[in-house]
Simulated scan of single mutants.
Amino acid sequence: MHPDGTTPGQIPASGYPNSMMGQPMPPSAPMYVSPRGRSVRSGEWSTNLCHCCDDPANCMITCFCPCITFGQIAEIVDRGSSSSEHSGCAAKGTIYGLLAMTGFACLYSCFYRSKLRGQYDLDEAPCVDCLVHFCCEACALCQEYRELKSRGFDMGIGWEANMDRQKRGINTVAPAVGHGMTR
């Protein structure tokens, strides 16, 4: 039993999982393998903010043209809500590029980080989303890109093509991993 009066796996009266109240996640929490080969529990990012070099190609693209990376992230996070397959990516990347000229792109992109975190129940780490994007925009975009990639998305083909692959049974997600040895 936890100090808040709940048993492992039971949601406390606050409505927040035990892990958000300083309690460990129950052993049944979903896990998957990150690109770095480590087991990741639900709520954790698959890579840290400063692991940009885990994907050198994306790191270079993001450093020189962050609007491309942002457009790819936005396409997946928005679940292809645009009418045409790649217009969502191009439109959002263009908006990001225009906002980058004014210095407000980090405000636009932090909204998508928050949305991504909500979709995958990720921690707001290492600090609040707007500060992450304001202080280290390129690293934040690279981390979000790697996170979606580690969850099985082919970032270069857009939402519709990813859903088509999923329907055809082409699975690019690493299998779930148990949490240690059991008897």
Rank of each mutant, 00 (worst) to 15 (best):
A29D: 04
G180Y: 06
E85Q: 01
C63R: 15
C52M: 12
Y108Q: 00
Y145W: 14
F153K: 07
P175S: 05
R117L: 08
I73L: 12
S84V: 15
G37D: 07
L98C: 07
I95N: 05
A174V: 09
Q23T: 14
A91C: 06
L141G: 11
D55W: 13
S109D: 02
M25T: 06
G180L: 03
C63E: 14
Y108M: 00
F64W: 11
T102N: 03
T69P: 01
P175W: 06
P17C: 08
R36E: 08
H2G: 05
V177Y: 07
D4I: 01
G156C: 14
G156E: 05
T182D: 03
M31P: 11
F153S: 09
F153G: 08
Q72T: 01
T182F: 01
T182G: 04
M31S: 15
A140T: 00
G22D: 10
L141P: 13
A91L: 06
K115Q: 06
Q166W: 11
H2S: 09
G152V: 13
C106P: 01
K167S: 00
Y108E: 01
S19M: 04
I61R: 00
Q143R: 15
S46I: 10
D54Q: 12
G37P: 14
T172L: 12
I170P: 05
M101G: 04
C136M: 12
W45S: 10
M20D: 06
S81V: 12
T172F: 02
L122D: 00
Y32L: 05
S83N: 03
M155N: 09
D78K: 07
S34C: 09
Q119G: 02
R168G: 06
T94G: 09
K167V: 02
A57F: 14
I170K: 15
D121L: 03
S109V: 01
A140M: 00
R183D: 05
C67Q: 12
P12V: 02
Q10M: 12
V33L: 07
A57R: 11
D121N: 04
V128N: 12
C139S: 09
D4F: 01
S84F: 13
P66L: 05
